[in-house]
Write a protein that binds this DNA or RNA. Structure first.
Lengths: 149, 149
DNA sequence: CGATATTTGCAAGGTAGCGAACGATTGTCA
DNA sequence: TGACAATCGTTCGCTACCTTGCAAATATCG
């Protein structure tokens, strides 16, 4: 969050937050005319590119908690963009499929890759690799601490 | 969010998100016994270190939207940790002050610096600097795009 | 086979973020 | 001075994240 100017150091976490929220805000602003949130877009993106998916697998792929995904799916079903059928062998699982309206909307949506390009385009590849490595290592350490608590 | 394995590139934004949420989850877990959220902690931290603050200034310092801070302050007032008085020259402004209960709780809270240390301790300073530079540049670019939209 | 454990999804309740719209106050300027 | 603009905080509605607790279905193992 803020700079934590008492120590001067903790800027990394603060910038991770700022960067994440800035990208997400741009995504939300771009999708607002289509009445879509960023995570809803990720769900449509996955279904459009990988076909019908079991809700459990989608949660794993997008790294969303079951409860979180459940709400998002409910919203998308209410908008008739996604169909949720309890088909298949396992009666606990729900299969998610794009509806015709969902496919139509997906084709109308603008390409969002400009966001990533605008953010990181032109930056030295080695610096990007360093950034990823640092963030990845920090994340792993934090998650280890969380697990062992 | 996810890896966006179609292009393989957008990992930076995904790791920024993961790292931010991992740190925040650890913060939330540590504060849970005290019934405090991470942003509530930042408000107490600021008031404990900088003294009574006008709500507007606190929002700027912590980079929180007015609507967001309003809700958090309401929560802290309900818990009788913070007092919100409409004092001063400008009758629009609200002054935020730690109550005695707030000061007492603040002294009981554990030191959270271990989180930053665990995440980034031992990592090469130059790499950390590169990470901050990359994230900062990306954030600025994104915010520029947001403004001009 | 049957008791137990695991998995899957849902609902409720809480935190944190946003935009938009609204009073109330204050500042500005013709 | 008086109309208009800007500021400050709140409220409303929304997205998205979490935990906890539940029920149903399935898997596992004695």
């Amino acid at each position: 969050m803020p700079e934590r100017s008492d120590a001067g150091r903790p800027a990394v976490g603060g910038w991770a937050k700022r960067c994440y929220f800035a990208g997400r805000a741009l995504m939300d602003a771009t999708l607002r005319p289509y009445d879509l949130g960023s995570t809803q877009w990720y769900v449509l993106w996955h279904l459009a590119n990988f076909g019908p998916t079991v809700q459990r697998d989608l949660g794993r792929a997008l790294e969303l908690e079951r409860a979180t995904l459940s709400g998002i799916v409910t919203t998308l079903v209410r908008k008739t963009l996604v169909e949720q059928t309890s088909s298949g062998e396992d009666q606990r699982q729900r299969l998610l499929t794009l509806t015709v309206a969902g496919e139509t909307l997906w084709r109308e949506l603008p390409d969002l890759s400009f966001i990533h390009d605008a953010a990181f385009g032109g930056i030295d590849e080695a610096d990007l690799a360093t950034t990823v490595r640092v963030l990845q290592l920090a994340t792993e350490r934090l998650q280890n601490l969380l697990r062992k608590e």
